[in-house]
Structures are given as C-alpha cells and as structure tokens.
C-alpha cells in the first residue's frame, strides 16, 4: 500500500469500527473517538464518570468489534497484585506452573481502579509501560495489541486510593464520560428495553490494529507544529522559561515528557482521521485536554478557587495561541 491507500484504509477501518461501536453505545462520541485514538496510538485510557454511563459496555463492544480477548478486573481494597498479574501455582505433578492473571488479555478493563491499594495499582505499571509482567523473576510478555482501560468514580471517594502520579502518567488519555443528554438517554432506553440487542460484528483484526498504529506513526509533523506542542507542555510548568499565567497560579507540577509524546501521537491520529498527512495545530489543541488534564498536578489554590484541570489546560492553550501570530503582517 502506498501512502494514499494506507491513509484511505486507515480512515475506512476506523470509520467502520466507530460505526460498529455506535450500534451499542449511544452518544458519547467524544469518548468513543478518544478510545479509538488511544487504540491507534498504542495508549491506555483512564475513563472517569459516574456509574452506569456505559464505560464497561464501551470496552466490551470495542473488544467484540475487533474480536480480541477481553478481561475485566473489578478492583477492590483487598485485591492483591497476584490477582491482577497471575502467580506460580504448585501442581500435582510436583512443579510450579505460572497461572496467568486477568492482565493477560488484549483489552483489560480495570474497573474502579482507585478502589485498589497502591500496591495492587502498581502491579499494572510494568504491564502498561513494558507490555510484560515479571513473576518470580521471569518476564511474561503480553500479547499485542494490549490496551488497559481503567475507570474511576469521581464520587464516593471514601475508602479509595487516588492513583499515584507515576501511574496516571502512563495513561495516554483521561476521558471524562459525561451524563447523556435527554435525547441520548431516550435512545439508550429505547435500544435496551425493546426488541433485540444489537449484535456487534468484527470489523478489524489484531493485525489491522497493529497496521493502523504503524501508519499513524508516519504522519508528518512540521517544526512549527512541534514547537507549538512543546510550547504547550513548557507552558504547563510553573517554573519553566515561559510559563503561562494560569500555570504559574494553579499548577504545582506540569506535564511530563510522556505528555509531549502523547500529544504528538494523538495529533497524528487525529490528522489521519481527518484525512490529512500532517499534524495541524488544531489537532494539538484537540488533544490537549485528554492528554494534559491528568498530568497536571494542581495546587491548593486551584482547589480553593474551584479551578479544574480542564480550565487550566484551556488557559495554557490560550496563552500559547496568543504567542503564535501570523508571520506576515500586511
């Protein structure tokens, strides 16, 4: 396939995938798009929303649409790391045998991840970054494509363990699942309370996903766009060379280099989905919120003023845009 055909194939595959998910998941376009972008960019997603908004359904439907293994882990405070990764079990034959945990799947749904202890949460770290699990000194590779989709409930914070920054940084996107509108809700009710449930067909394979990831990596990024993206990352640091005013006021720690990688990767996927061969500044702006919102560590003042991470990201984007002017003034 040449470049044009590759791009065409990518768009077609992703359109089909989205359409297939859309059969089951009503509304939530941004969330679905975000999950698909993360899938194409080989990233993991943290979904935050109230219970019953279809988070689990989305993951399950995605797994069905690409016909890949899917496992769901319900995190609880008494869960141990071995419950996630697996363990060596003594067998009747007299030896030890590694019994794989639920992490060994293509799509892993870590439901209510913030209810597990930090120890258990950290068991995901190696799997998410290295795509392998080490048990008893023996590394066990995870099968590609591998994607973790964790959910967390913004309410009922009692008895929960907020995710450590190191783990948050490993999530490519943090998507906020909004409450459905009345029209969407009516559609949800109609689809689920009458007739038969829609059946999801397989529209892509594991190989297709890997191919899609390879294609998106080829998308061009001009030096100006790269500079624009990096300016955004730098502006999120209150103690950087050019911090934005809002970051200086409300941010304790800015985005990590992994954030810069994520924003460019996401921009590439967005460009491909939009039928372009280059990343635009608009793509970077679109990726800014899902990439940066969980990577900014806000200070007490933001909490006191009721400023959210999304508002801070908006402020950073505005500050960077203000400095980005037309080079020709006539």
């Amino acid at each position: 396939m040449n470049g044009l055909e590759s791009a065409e194939w990518f768009r077609k595959t992703w359109t089909n995938l989205r359409a297939e998910i859309g059969k089951v998941v009503v509304g939530q376009e941004e969330v679905v798009e975000g999950v698909l972008v993360a899938l194409a960019a080989n990233g993991h997603v943290l979904l935050e929303g109230m219970p019953g908004l279809g988070k689990t359904l989305l993951i399950r439907t995605l797994a069905q649409a690409v016909d890949l293994d899917y496992s769901r882990i319900q995190f609880t405070p008494d869960m141990m790391p071995a419950d996630v990764t697996g363990t060596n079990v003594f067998t009747q034959s007299g030896g030890f045998e590694f019994r794989r945990g639920p992490i060994f799947a293509n799509f892993v749904l870590a439901d209510e991840i913030n209810r597990a202890t930090p120890k258990t949460q950290s068991s995901l770290l190696e799997a998410m970054q290295e795509r392998q699990v080490s048990i008893g000194g023996t590394p066990h590779a995870l099968t590609e494509p591998f994607m973790v989709m964790a959910t967390q409930n913004p309410v009922e914070q009692e008895g929960t363990y907020p995710l450590p920054e190191a783990q948050l940084d490993r999530f490519f996107f943090k998507l906020i699942v909004p409450n459905p509108s009345k029209a969407v809700l009516a559609e949800v009710v109609n689809r689920t309370t009458q007739g038969e449930m829609a059946q999801v067909s397989k529209v892509a394979s594991a190989e297709d996903l890997i191919q899609a990831r390879r294609i998106t990596r080829e998308v061009s990024v001009s030096p100006e766009v790269l500079d624009y993206a990096l300016s955004m990352i730098v502006a999120s640091h209150p103690d950087s060379e050019k911090p934005s005013d809002i970051a200086k006021k409300y941010v304790r720690y800015g985005a990590s280099p992994r954030g810069a990688q994520s924003i460019i990767s996401a921009g590439k996927v967005y460009a491909m989905l939009e039928g372009r061969f280059n990343v635009s500044k608009e793509n970077i702006q679109k990726a800014a919120k899902p990439v940066l919102r969980h990577r900014l560590i806000l200070n007490y003042e933001s909490e006191a003023d009721g400023v959210t991470a999304d508002q801070v990201v908006d402020g950073i984007v505005d500050a960077v845009n203000a400095g980005d002017k037309d080079p020709i003034r006539v």
């Binding site: 100006e224 766009v225 061969f277 635009s280 608009e282």
Partner: peptide, 17 residues
C-alpha cells in the same frame, strides 16, 4: 491546517507520506 508549511518542510524528506 499547516498543510503548506508541513509540505514545505517535508516535501523532499523521503518520509512515508
């Protein structure tokens, strides 16, 4: 959407696209 500037930079870069 930065098509021209990107093409100006990457047209002869030998990249895939």
């Amino acid at each position: 959407e930065d098509r021209t500037a990107s093409a100006f930079h990457k047209a002869e870069s030998g990249e895939f696209f």
